[in-house]
């Protein structure tokens, strides 16, 4: 089945991959290498002196119960963000796919939130859920529920998850929708003739055929939840109340740019790099087996 194009000689293939290698080297390997190097030192903020501490930064971090707790927070947060952004996206895509009239309008509207920058999305949600003047918390108050994410950790987590997942739904929708369109109608029709109803067709035919897309989105969304949600957290909770929304990447920022502790910050980015790398390898090794291309 697999088609391979083979080249004669080395020069042409090298030239072809050179731009990508160059980009990766400049924008990924070099900074990553710097982070590893810096994680072995405690520098002062102005770069006037550096003190070699070996693995001291890692020791310091891993012996900190608050840092270890932030792993659990991150796991909960990224699982929730991934679920909350993929499940509704799939649902919307399936529904939009069945539309006959006005599909274009729905599609466009559903894609819009993706254009909103995370920090802006954070502010929007913050306004709606503001404990004293927010529209949503006002209605909740009328229903007898006292919304207070400023003091309630669970509510704060819920809010940052929703704010992070919201814009992402659009992105996922786009991919699911395209994948649904690519499923041959004949397969679905054949199943329908055999008497399979919508949900049965969905579970046994559509979902398995979507698996490459689902897998791709899973990887991309987890990476998103780990790295890019920092703007939302910064604007909504700043990691609080207490430490209930301090995820790993937020701690990298706050130690590095609030605390000016570049050694600890570098060590944390190395740890984060390892965690996400391991997670991605795990996904490719074990989950990808269940993907049918």
């Amino acid at each position: 089945m697999e088609k391979r194009v083979t080249f004669k000689g080395w020069l042409l293939p090298l030239c072809l991959i050179a731009p990508q290698v160059l980009v990766s080297a400049v924008f990924f390997f070099y900074p990553a290498g710097q982070a590893v190097w810096q994680s072995l030192f405690i520098p002062d903020p102005f770069g006037l002196s550096m003190q070699y501490v070996g693995l001291g930064n890692f020791e310091y971090l891993l012996s900190d119960p608050y840092y270890r707790a932030s792993f659990l927070t991150t796991a909960i947060f990224s699982t929730l963000v991934t679920l909350c952004s993929m499940v509704p996206a799939l649902f919307l895509a399936v529904v939009a796919d069945r539309l006959i009239k006005g599909a274009g309008v729905y599609r466009t509207m559903l894609i819009w939130p993706y254009a909103v920058a995370p920090a802006i999305a954070g502010v929007l949600w913050l306004f709606m859920f503001n404990t004293r003047v927010g529209v949503v918390s006002w209605y909740l108050g009328h229903l007898g529920y006292d919304w207070n994410h400023v003091l309630n950790g669970g509510e704060a987590m819920g809010l940052v998850v929703v704010a992070s997942a919201w814009g992402r739904i659009s992105y996922n929708f786009l991919f699911f929708f395209a994948a649904l369109q690519a499923i041959p109608k004949s397969v679905i029709e054949a199943a329908a003739i055999d008497g399979a109803r919508f949900w049965r067709r969905f579970w046994t035919i559509v979902l398995p055929l979507l698996s490459p897309t689902t897998f791709f989105l899973l990887v991309v969304n987890i990476v998103y939840a780990f790295f890019e949600t920092f703007g939302v957290i910064h604007t909504i909770t700043s990691g609080g109340p207490q430490q209930s929304t301090t995820i790993l990447v937020y701690k990298v920022f706050s130690d590095g740019f609030v605390g000016q502790d570049l050694g600890s910050s570098a060590a944390q980015s190395v740890i984060l790099l390892v965690v996400v790398g391991a997670l991605t390898i795990f996904q490719f090794k074990f989950i990808e087996r269940r993907v049918h291309y």
């Binding site: 400023v150 003091l151 309630n152 609080g240 109340p241 207490q242 430490q243």
Partner: peptide, 8 residues
């Protein structure tokens, strides 16, 4: 953070 724990 610690204050928030007290207020809560």
């Amino acid at each position: 953070e610690e204050f928030e724990a007290v207020w809560a």
